[in-house]
Design a protein around this nucleic acid. Structure first.
Lengths: 343, 343
DNA sequence: TTTTGTAGACGAAACGTTTCGACTTGTGGA
DNA sequence: TCCACAAGTCGAAACGTTTCGTCTACAAAA
């Protein structure tokens, strides 16, 4: 059906090896080059990637292993990654986990890796759920490069690259903003004590309080673990009733939504009763009314960096060079809304 | 390195053909079956998909060709599609176009198809930008099944399946809701006169007005073509000043955001000055204040239907059966907010 | 016992590349 | 004129499957 390298060879009278060499950018005599190009045109030849893959043991796909597509943050990163991978000729094999609690997400991530491995991806870009990196053992054994997004895995620090944001700094900025406005009764909501970003952001939050000599009350550092939405909603409201904060910081897009719901349910008005800083741009675009202060992650840059690191690792694993694991830390920026009131 | 079918053959003393047959679900003698299973376990054999693909001329990937990931609607559909394709053993090769005006989007869609074809996808699920379907000619010639989302392409009606929502009905529902509240001065904003969904939704909108004997003023049916965001924002504001509507319908998620911005900029309060029905859930989740009425598309069902139709078409193109192009129409539902005021 | 039928096993040839080692050609230096 | 060498070319053997046609072995029918 479709023309093969053999057809080109026949038509030009050249050998297979020569055609192959030309296709892969090798040197051929000018007159042969012309003949080959003519034949390729005439026969509408396209190299059969599958056959090539069989020989080269590559597939030209990078697996993109992500949690469920539940927020704009992930979406923008995916958009950028597939864009840049494509520019390097790679396809993007998307694997988004099912939504669910932490435990489910961790388990499905293991299946995910199996699936991608079976499909034969050349590399994996991953926003990990298993923070110990168990799911990455096999790919690494097989020599498949892995790039992490959003989190670092200490156990794997010498073998995988990471693209993260300055979580400590981001939380610190958020807290500072509230402290500067005179708030002292601030509650911070964080995602999971066992969660990398959760911990780091809490760390930054506490740092900021300390620096300002604001007493740190462990009651006001709230970790919403792998709890179900229903339950965590309850916990937030309880905490609000208990502390009656004048300001809150929500360290996650999901938490921002839930905190806003809880505030409304408890009758807090923003910013009159309580000032708010959220995350990832949730609530910054209300046509009317309150626009939340928010810590924005540079999604395009994150995706871009991840794709570039992956490309590099793939080039390395084909050719020479040293595959140093890199850690790329990018700053978050503060979106200035109108959800903070001076006191 | 990794075990191959040959290793299994050697270990069991059986022929290659027998192993292959077993792997593909054929019948083998019980004692052989056991031997093979033992060997597979022992050698940790995994079939090499690439080699298989070379023979079978399939890749096990479905191309998912989408516009830029700019809204939750697309995101949820993608999530569902990749989930269900995976359940059938297919990988999802994601291709999201770059954002841009209509013209750019159309052009990049052509490149997109080339890319996916070169990667050798077995089928393409597409939310089309080229409404005449030019970009799908080649895949169809090559016998690669195509399933459309969100739009139909009349020229290709006998060759591709579509999963759409009842756009006419959705717009009618929205309009009815406003009419029922007593509004007569209603402006509808639609996306592009050359745009399938835009036209259908306008149609439903007009129908509803007609049915209620509400005079239809072409000034109040506004199509925002391929215009840039900046410009369309200007047009919306101008239209608001000119018509001073008591109600507006925004027939798209993007338009909903822009209309809300424009309303705010022009000093309209919702719902006191103007009632609003939007689309795709934009503005339905504000923690505080207005929750927009919105027409919600059943994203999970759309994705699910598209994946299932694709699977079916792929099974057909391998085995027997009739590949009738199907059109699946799903209903949109009304989200009840508080953005409508009776007059 | 012979014949017929059938389920299962088998070897070999593909699928379309890449790559290795050997071969050819032409150039410049001795 | 001859030799050495580099640049290009070539055929053949892989890569790991699937599949076709043939063959074997055994059971049932005659």
């Amino acid at each position: 059906m479709a023309a093969t390298i053999k057809d080109i060879a026949r038509r030009t009278g050249l050998g297979l090896a020569t055609i192959s060499k030309y296709i892969n950018g090798g040197n051929v005599l000018p007159k042969n080059r012309e003949a080959i190009e003519e034949a390729i045109q005439a026969l509408d030849f396209k190299v059969n990637e599958t056959a090539r893959n069989l020989k080269t043991r590559h597939t030209g796909y990078v697996g993109l292993l992500m949690p469920a597509l539940t927020n704009g943050f992930i979406m923008e990163i995916i958009q950028q990654i597939q864009l840049e991978l494509r520019a390097d000729g790679y396809g993007t094999a998307l694997y988004c986990a099912v939504p669910g609690d932490d435990d489910i997400r961790r388990r499905t991530e293991l299946e995910a890796v199996d699936f991608l491995l079976q499909k034969g991806v050349d590399g994996i870009i991953n926003l990990p759920q298993n923070e110990d990196g168990v799911h990455l053992q096999r790919p690494l054994e097989l020599g498949i490069p892995v790039t992490l997004i959003d989190k670092q895995i200490p156990e794997l620090a010498d073998r995988v690259s990471s693209v993260i944001i300055d979580n400590v700094g981001a939380a610190r900025t958020a807290a500072d903003e509230l402290l500067n406005a005179g708030h002292r009764n601030i509650v911070g909501f964080f995602h999971g004590e066992t969660n990398y970003t959760g911990r780091r952001r809490a760390e930054g939050f506490v740092d900021a309080l300390h620096e300002r000599g604001c007493p740190v009350d462990s009651d006001r550092i709230v970790f919403l673990g792998g709890a179900r939405e229903r339950t965590s909603q309850e916990l937030i409201r309880e905490k609000l009733r208990q502390c009656r904060p004048t300001a809150v910081f929500a360290a996650t897009s999901g938490l921002t939504s839930r905190v806003m719901e809880a505030l409304e349910a408890e009758g807090f008005r923003v910013p009159d009763d309580v000032s708010v800083v959220g995350f990832d741009g949730v609530g910054t675009e209300n046509g009317h009314g309150v626009k939340l202060y928010s810590m924005l992650q540079p999604t395009a840059q994150i995706g871009s960096a991840a794709a570039r690191i992956m490309s590099e690792q793939l080039r390395v694993s084909t050719g020479g060079g040293v595959p140093l694991p890199q850690v790329r830390t990018l700053p978050a920026t503060l979106f200035v809304g109108n959800s903070i009131k001076r006191v």
